Amino acid sequence: MLVVEDLHKSFVTAQGRLPVLRGVNLRLDAGESLALTGESGSGKSTLLHLVAGLDYPDSGCVRVHGEVLHARREAGLAQWRRTGIGLVFQQYNLIGSLDVAANLDFQARLAGRHDAAWSEHLAQRLGLAPLLARYPEQLSGGQQQRVAIGRALASRPGLVLADEPTGSLDEGSSDAVLDLLLALVRDAGSSLLMVTHSMRMAARLSRRVTLHLGQVRGDGDADATSTAARM
């Protein structure tokens, strides 16, 4: 459902143009989970932002179900962010003025896909049912991350993008949160692309690839290249 083909991205710095992505290729099939690893500064978050339609590549393309994502106008990219993806960040990014129930429903209501039964299922599975009237500041870090996961999945997006979703949690909380994320991604019928620095966490997903010197290395290379060539 997702093909990244020969993607390049650079940024202008005081020292000149800094290449970050140098011809990235990868593929993510429907229902698959893929871990993206790599050293700090390797461009993992940059790649995630491009797939999310939050930035534009210098060259190359991101294809979603065969459509070139960045051929869309800004309104089309905004629609992709509302309805096509769910985003889970390391720092939660919850809305402080909304209680847990409203935070859980926020993305689904934006997408026009609010489903009360599915929201109730998410709250129960995430252990949030007793906390629905609380506000983010009243929650632990692990509880806030569970709300963020529920929000991302509330609209049943085709693709979930997670940027270090357990990076700020201790090991025990990390394991519990990842268990829930993987289970609920399956329940929602979504695909998952997760950035992580943890090899232990990456091993839990269907596949793992590594971003190094601006290119993807790993078990997805050949598949990504051959798929891109066929399109």
Rank of each mutant, 00 (worst) to 15 (best):
G220C: 14
G84A: 08
L2F: 09
L98V: 03
R200Q: 15
L184M: 06
A129R: 14
C61Y: 00
L184T: 02
G66W: 05
G84Q: 06
L139C: 14
R113F: 03
A14M: 03
K9W: 00
E5Y: 06
V185H: 00
R72K: 11
R73K: 08
H8N: 00
E67Q: 06
D175F: 05
L139E: 10
A111S: 13
V12R: 15
L132P: 14
G41A: 07
H212D: 08
A133S: 11
V209E: 06
A116P: 10
L205W: 02
R27Y: 11
L192E: 03
S40Q: 05
P157A: 02
L211W: 03
S226Q: 15
R17S: 09
D221P: 04
C61E: 06
H114F: 12
L28T: 14
P19K: 05
G84Y: 08
N93S: 05
G43C: 08
L180H: 02
D58P: 11
H121R: 10
H121N: 08
L126G: 04
H65Q: 13
G76R: 02
S97D: 12
R146L: 00
L110Y: 08
K44N: 14
H70M: 01
R27L: 13
S42W: 06
L213E: 15
L48K: 09
R113D: 12
S10Y: 00
A129T: 15
T13D: 01
N25F: 15
S97V: 08
A111H: 07
E5Q: 13
T46R: 10
V24P: 00
E32G: 13
A224L: 13
S140C: 07
S140I: 04
D105N: 11
D223S: 09
A52K: 11
D187I: 00
D6R: 06
L110V: 11
S226E: 15
G38I: 01
G112K: 13
G86E: 02
S198K: 01
S97M: 05
L211C: 09
A14Q: 10
L2A: 07
L77R: 09
S10N: 10
G141C: 00
V51R: 07
T210V: 12
A111C: 14
A102T: 10
A111V: 13
G16W: 04
G53A: 12
D187V: 08
R125H: 01
N93Y: 14
S198P: 06
E171N: 13
Y135R: 11
L2R: 08
L132G: 09
H70R: 01
S198T: 10
A102C: 06
V209I: 15
R217S: 13
M1Q: 09
G127R: 14
S191L: 09
M199C: 02
L26Y: 03
D223Y: 11
D219N: 13
V51K: 09
V177D: 06
L50N: 01
A14R: 04
A116N: 07
A108D: 07
E74T: 04
L132Y: 09
A75F: 04
R207K: 13
S155M: 12
M199E: 12
T225L: 11
A30S: 08
L178G: 04
L77A: 03
Q15K: 13
T37I: 12
R82H: 09
D175A: 06
M199H: 12
G172A: 09
V160K: 01
L182S: 05
S10E: 05
L213Y: 13
E32I: 03
R186H: 06
R72Y: 01
